[in-house]
Amino acid sequence: MAFKIDVQNLNLFYGEKQALFNVSLGLPASQTTALIGPSGCGKSSFLRCLNRMNDVVPNLHLEGKVLLDGKDIYDPSVDVVDLRSHVGMVFQKPNPFPRSIYENVAYGPRIHRLFKDKSALDQIVEKSLTRAGLWDEVKDRLQQAATRLSGGQQQRLCIARAIAVNPKVILMDEPCSALDPIATAKIEELIDELREKFTLVIVTHNLQQAARISQKTAFFHSGYLVEAGETGELFTTPKDERTQGYITGRYG
């Protein structure tokens, strides 16, 4: 199986402080990879390296390679703006733009000029909302403010927004931690469906969720990638005792 994203020997520094130590991880295409670990272990920092969102952090310094379809995204010739249209992100707390539902989804295609005319854009919006499982609920009120949706709906809107630019990879940073169980279930269902077209990488605190939705899991601890492997195996027969300890709830 080819790795959509192949991280090789990644070392991440915030100024003098090192956050990630020689991490090497392959993220398989058309699969969901879960990143788990205790608070502060570096899994979110790692995630943000995959679409260079860490670039906005001052004093950031990075060593190693992150290959997307074989090309290092940290190569100077890479345009960050273009990269992010291929690697999308959904954040922990839903953050729709304070605009209409339609405009939220349409924003990505607009700035990347992905459509020819209005009807093409309408189609993109409908397709994205449908894929995000939101279309039926909002099709009659596309011009309404996005902030009037419920938390779960807003998050699905953010997913639709990310999908609209047709990325290769979707990164999700604890997408359900701010949502209630019903909304969480809906999103987990969605994640399973999205796997068909996209590669997903999800940071989560919820071990049961990781076990439910992912095919590969990576366990981080204090900036080190302790163990990574097929989800079933990692959860039933972890190779490292730290992994064992985290999974059984001894700490974390």
Partner: peptide, 12 residues
């Protein structure tokens, strides 16, 4: 968060 959302989508 607003800026993040826009940046994440690939806005300059």
């Amino acid at each position: 968060a607003l800026k993040e959302a826009a940046l994440g989508l690939g806005a300059t």
